[in-house]
Amino acid sequence: MRHIDISKLERNPKHVWEVSEYCRKSGVSRTEEKRLIRILGRYASAHELQMNLVRPNNRSRC
């Protein structure tokens, strides 16, 4: 466990997710979850997760 100096924290804290929990709730595949953990580590902000998530292209052109 690490000690954090409260005076150095931001006033508007970001919501930090556990990557595996975020993937489970969002329906992300297991292989994509492993890739995100390799890139970001075990914890990441929602913005980092969304920007690094690769979704399959399901749209087709008409």
Rank of each mutant, 00 (worst) to 15 (best):
I37W: 00
Y22M: 06
L40E: 10
S26P: 01
Q50H: 09
I4T: 13
Y22K: 04
R24I: 01
S7Y: 07
V54K: 14
L40R: 08
S29Q: 05
C23L: 11
R35M: 10
M1F: 13
Y43N: 12
R2C: 08
E33P: 01
I4Q: 14
I37G: 01
L40S: 08
K8G: 11
A44V: 04
N12H: 13
M1L: 14
E10I: 09
R42V: 10
K14E: 15
I4E: 15
Y22W: 15
A44Y: 05
E33S: 02
N52A: 03
Y43F: 15
S26E: 11
S26T: 07
R11N: 14
I6V: 12
I39K: 13
A44D: 05
K14H: 10
H47W: 08
K14F: 12
L53E: 01
C23A: 11
L36K: 03
V16S: 03
G27M: 07
H47N: 14
I6M: 11
R11H: 10
N52M: 08
C62I: 09
R59P: 00
C23Q: 08
N58M: 09
L40I: 02
L9S: 09
W17Q: 06
R38Q: 11
A46I: 04
M51P: 00
N12W: 14
M1T: 13
K14S: 15
H15E: 09
R2Y: 05
L40W: 05
E33F: 00
E21T: 13
N57P: 00
R30G: 01
W17L: 10
N12D: 14
R38H: 12
R11V: 14
R35V: 07
N58Q: 02
P13D: 07
G27V: 03
G41E: 07
V16E: 13
N57Y: 08
S60Q: 13
L9N: 06
L53A: 01
R42I: 08
V28T: 07
R55T: 07
N58V: 11
L49Y: 10
V28S: 02
L53S: 03
I39H: 02
H3D: 14
R59A: 14
K8I: 07
L36R: 04
R2I: 14
W17N: 09
V16M: 11
V19K: 02
E18R: 05
Y43S: 12
S20K: 15
